[in-house]
Simulated assay, not measured.
Amino acid sequence: MPGPKDLDPSSSPRALLGAELRHAREQAGLSQDELGLRLFVSGSFIGQLEAGTRRMQPEYARMLDEVLETGGFFLRNCRAAAKSKYPEHFAEAAEAEAQATAIREYAPQLIPGLLQTPAYARAVIRAYDPTTPEETVDKWVDARLERIRLLNHPTRPVLWVVLDEAALRRETGGRTVMAEALCHIRDLARRSRVIVQVLPLSAGAHAVMEGALKLMEFEDAPPLAYFEGVGTGRLEDDPSTVTQLRFRFDLLVASALPQEKSLALIEALAQDYAHEEHP
Results as ranks from 00 to 15, higher is better:
P9K: 06
P9W: 09
S10G: 13
S10V: 14
P13D: 08
P13M: 04
P13Y: 10
R14W: 03
A15G: 09
A15P: 00
L17Y: 05
A19E: 02
R22W: 07
E26M: 09
D33T: 12
G36N: 03
G36D: 02
F40D: 05
V41A: 03
V41C: 05
S42H: 10
F45M: 09
Q48V: 14
Q48M: 15
L49C: 05
E50I: 08
A51Y: 07
R54K: 13
M56P: 01
M56Q: 02
Q57F: 06
Q57H: 10
E59M: 04
Y60C: 00
A61Q: 02
M63L: 14
L64V: 09
D65M: 13
E66Q: 11
E66I: 03
T70N: 00
T70R: 02
G72L: 00
F74N: 00
C78P: 01
R79F: 10
A82W: 02
S84P: 13
S84H: 10
S84E: 08
E88I: 10
H89E: 12
F90R: 09
E92W: 04
A93L: 11
A93F: 08
A94L: 08
A96I: 04
E97Y: 01
A98W: 00
Q99L: 15
T101E: 05
T101F: 08
I103R: 01
R104K: 08
P108L: 02
Q109H: 08
I111Q: 11
P112I: 10
P112A: 09
V124C: 15
Y128M: 14
Y128I: 11
T131D: 15
T132G: 07
E134Q: 15
E135K: 12
D138E: 15
W140L: 14
V141S: 07
L145H: 03
E146G: 11
R149V: 13
P157Q: 13
V161W: 03
E165S: 06
A167S: 15
A167Y: 06
R169Y: 05
R170Q: 11
R170V: 03
R175T: 06
T176F: 11
M178L: 11
M178F: 12
E180L: 09
L182D: 04
H184C: 06
I185L: 15
R186A: 14
L188P: 09
R191M: 15
R193V: 03
V194I: 07
V194N: 13
P200T: 09
S202C: 08
A203E: 04
A203F: 10
G204D: 04
M209I: 11
M209W: 09
G211Q: 10
L215H: 00
L215E: 01
F218C: 07
E219D: 06
E219M: 07
P222I: 15
P223W: 10
E228D: 14
G229R: 10
G229Y: 04
V230A: 11
V230L: 11
V230W: 12
G233Q: 05
G233E: 06
L235M: 08
E236P: 00
E236L: 14
Q244L: 03
Q244Y: 01
Q244N: 13
L251E: 14
L252K: 01
L252M: 11
A254M: 13
S255I: 01
E260G: 07
E260I: 04
K261E: 15
K261I: 01
S262P: 02
S262G: 07
L263T: 10
L265T: 11
I266A: 13
I266S: 03
I266F: 12
A268Y: 04
A270Y: 11
Q271C: 08
Y273C: 05
E276A: 13
E277T: 11
E277D: 15
H278Q: 12
